[in-house]
Design a protein around this nucleic acid. Sequence first.
DNA 1: AGTCATTGCACCATCGATTGTGCAAAAAAG
DNA 2: CTTTTTTGCACAATCGATGGTGCAATGACT
Lengths: 351, 351
Amino acid sequence: MADIKKKATIYDLSILSGASASTVSAVLNGSWRKRRIKEATAQLIQNLANEHGYTANLQARGLRSSRSGLVGLLLPVHDNRYFSSMAQSFEAQVRSRGQCPLVVSACRDPDEERQVVETLISYSIDELFIAGATDPDGVHKVCEKAGLKHVNIDLPGTLAPSVISDNYEGARMLTQAIIERAQEDGPLSPDDLYLFGGRNDHASHERIRGFRDVKRALLGADPDVCIQPTGYSPAMTARAFEAFYEGHGKLPRTFFVNSSINLEGLMRFLALHPHETFADIIVGCYDYDPFGSFLPFPVFMIRQDSEAMITKGFAILDADRGPPITHQVRPTLVPPRTALTGPLDALKDIE
Amino acid sequence: MADIKKKATIYDLSILSGASASTVSAVLNGSWRKRRIKEATAQLIQNLANEHGYTANLQARGLRSSRSGLVGLLLPVHDNRYFSSMAQSFEAQVRSRGQCPLVVSACRDPDEERQVVETLISYSIDELFIAGATDPDGVHKVCEKAGLKHVNIDLPGTLAPSVISDNYEGARMLTQAIIERAQEDGPLSPDDLYLFGGRNDHASHERIRGFRDVKRALLGADPDVCIQPTGYSPAMTARAFEAFYEGHGKLPRTFFVNSSINLEGLMRFLALHPHETFADIIVGCYDYDPFGSFLPFPVFMIRQDSEAMITKGFAILDADRGPPITHQVRPTLVPPRTALTGPLDALKDIE
DNA sequence: AGTCATTGCACCATCGATTGTGCAAAAAAG
DNA sequence: CTTTTTTGCACAATCGATGGTGCAATGACT
């Protein structure tokens, strides 16, 4: 009656039912038809299992079958709308496949990335999504050695299949949008359009390339000084804005910010200066954040389709051993003052 | 040399070293001094282990010892700055204790909450943090039955120890702040101050209580109509704003929003209306979001100290079997246009 | 009735680690 | 040179599930 103490095992049910443990196992993991177990026996065992609240010990199962039902997602950080919404979609998709999501972050530190993945491997995870890794190929080697299937998301590697945002196209759309918007307020000179943020990774390169191509095409010139890669840190980005401000007494009229993390750097800068001074800036941000979209100046954003990337990632893993091709997913341009719906809207909310 | 295929086990090392598997095990899990293994033997085995890149199979270890090294955090959603930054702190703390974080969300659905926890239990997780659960006591029973240590975070239960934000005090601070700020623009009547969001949970109750107490004290009255619980959904919140707007041709001059999720509802409303109409609203939001803090109207925010909550949670679990007391952690009032540093700042960012 | 196929299930080794127990060899004590 | 103690390690059971193999009972068929 009151099984308050330990969890029931197949052995307990074996005794209760009079069947052998292997029969119980077969019944409870669904392979009983294959094993020609009588329907009546199966029923009996199922009932006992329900009655006693049996749930399989997944560590034992994993040990035996060397699969765990765990699927990993390696993130740079949680605390950011892009990655947290990726985590949200990831979780939903993993669950719908009957597996268990394992989301971890590694702070963009290549050593930590590898070490975290080692840990995941120790738990015999079945598949791994490597999102925004600083060193995807280093992680690849670790996975390879353990025979772990994996895909890169967001930042591509050269050794494993990758699914990334179409950064070049996204940057072009975004750049064009902010230029056109800025030109509504009067002619825009090349010196009025900057780019802040990003570092030496594929996404930044492509975004910068898109930015420069469009800028050159529309404004006729593209001085190097207008490109300010600051890394992915709010503090560094704030410093870059501050430096510009020191030199010019204002911010550039228009600028492209490489990610919402860099956009936080802008907030830090703004916090130190009266808002009125910058009432007329036009900003493009390569990432979408629902509050970022309503700042007191026009912010054009790029919404990356992390859900589609995850879906594509699973397709690749299911197709088993694709070549290390990079697939691009088209992002969308989000005009200022736009509140998109997201994973939150799937929440049940009674009352 | 090239162990490209399978992972090394203690048996492999046993053969290589000439020692028994149990000796290898003892050496590699650190219990070798206790087992009086010669230092030289230990060294030999350690070297072999490094050389062959040995890592323990944590499923096997977990099976044997019925501990997994996994610590769970159950969240309502990932996609939100409050919870994602909680996940970030949680991860850091779990890692620093040499365990592996397992963060999952259950969409505020009581059934899903219980089911997700069942799954975690099947992986023999060692401890569980239940954050923002709709039905903490239901989850408690599931844990109890499995002998799983757990604490409630953010929303308290009656059966297990809880660590929550001091919602009453936080709401008082926030309410007072927005009232005072609004009064700078002229006298504030009770009808000018509303509360939106929240539902039938402990946090909402306390926040509403704090709101009403301060409102009554400072404005002399506190009509029921000014309290608009909309649940935790952007869509419902947007609808409430819309309804008010329909009726009054404007938004309330000042209002308290129950959470950043509800604040997203305000964004949805704003997206449909020209900004100029609401240039003079004053908002308080019980949650902190770095972009929310820079919206085009004053937004006072409450920053809940999720890091401290997690720390306290571990303290409780370590103290083993405390009574089901609820501990409150004091949040901080964040004035408008404030960019706080967060877990992101711990990121390594070379270059 | 005798042979053969089918059904239904039990047995047992196995996954990789942990841990209580026992026993030689070496060291200390007498 | 015994006896006792300590040191250093091997053995084997165990955690809970899986899946290959084998065997008895039943039914089908000649």
